[in-house]
Computed example of a mutant assay.
Amino acid sequence: MSAVVDELDRRLTPWREELGTDWDAYRNHVRRVLAFCDELHAISFRAPHSPVPSTTEEYLTAAAFHDLGIWSAHTFDYLPPSVELAQRWLHEQDRVDLRTLVTEMISDHHKVRRAASPASPVEVFRRADTMDVSFGLVRFGVPRHRYSTIVKQLPDNGFHRRLVDLTIRRTREHPTSPLPMFKW
């Protein structure tokens, strides 16, 4: 897991100042999402030889940047700036081959309905983020004890409280569009 943490930190550290007091909260959210991707992968119908999501460029990049637009662009309408950050990263790493996939993973991670087939990276990522944001109320087959173990290892550190604060602020400022990141 330390290699995964190192890779995440390589992507996130340039944004540490921008994240400010939310650094630990966001970093642990990203790590929980990746851990939930791994759990979903383990119970899916994928071949046992396929790589664990948290070790792949597409998952690491989508996870690191998926909500970062909140802080980088100072907006709760953060999907476009988050996608832009991820695309820039992929370009700098000479991995433009993953541009479409990572864009879909970020753009559809708040889709209310299924985004793709259950084993698709887009859907695995959407489900993993949903698990975290819903406090495990929705687990997509991941056992409660596995969810609880991950949450204990990677505490919230105020991440959900920050989301509530941002939602309240957005609702006051844009009452007709309180949650612009959600899609049907």
Rank of each mutant, 00 (worst) to 15 (best):
R32A: 01
R32E: 03
R32Y: 05
R32I: 03
V33A: 15
V33P: 03
L34P: 04
L34V: 08
L34M: 08
L34S: 04
A35D: 03
A35H: 00
A35Q: 10
F36T: 00
F36H: 05
F36Q: 06
C37I: 08
C37V: 04
C37G: 00
D38T: 05
D38M: 07
D38Y: 09
E39Y: 00
E39T: 01
E39C: 10
E39W: 00
L40C: 05
L40N: 00
H41V: 02
A42D: 15
A42V: 05
A42Q: 14
I43G: 06
I43A: 09
I43C: 11
I43D: 11
I43K: 12
I43E: 09
I43F: 12
S44Y: 04
S44I: 00
F45Q: 13
F45A: 13
F45L: 10
F45E: 14
F45G: 14
F45Y: 11
R46K: 14
A47I: 03
A47F: 11
P48G: 07
P48M: 02
P48H: 08
H49Y: 09
H49L: 13
S50C: 14
S50D: 12
S50A: 11
P51F: 10
P51I: 03
P51S: 13
P51W: 05
V52P: 04
V52M: 13
V52W: 09
V52T: 13
P53S: 04
P53A: 06
P53V: 00
P53M: 09
S54E: 04
S54R: 08
T55I: 04
T55Q: 15
T55L: 12
T55N: 15
T55K: 14
T55D: 13
T55F: 02
T56R: 14
T56P: 09
T56M: 14
E57N: 08
E58R: 09
E58M: 11
Y59E: 06
Y59D: 03
Y59K: 02
Y59S: 05
L60T: 04
L60H: 01
T61C: 15
T61K: 02
T61Q: 10
T61Y: 08
A62N: 11
A62E: 10
A62H: 07
A62Q: 08
A63E: 06
A63R: 03
A63H: 01
A63C: 11
A63V: 02
A64W: 05
A64I: 01
A64K: 00
F65V: 00
F65R: 07
H66K: 11
H66L: 04
H66D: 10
H66E: 08
D67E: 12
D67L: 03
D67Q: 07
D67W: 02
D67N: 15
D67P: 05
D67A: 07
L68K: 10
L68P: 03
L68D: 03
L68V: 07
L68E: 06
L68G: 03
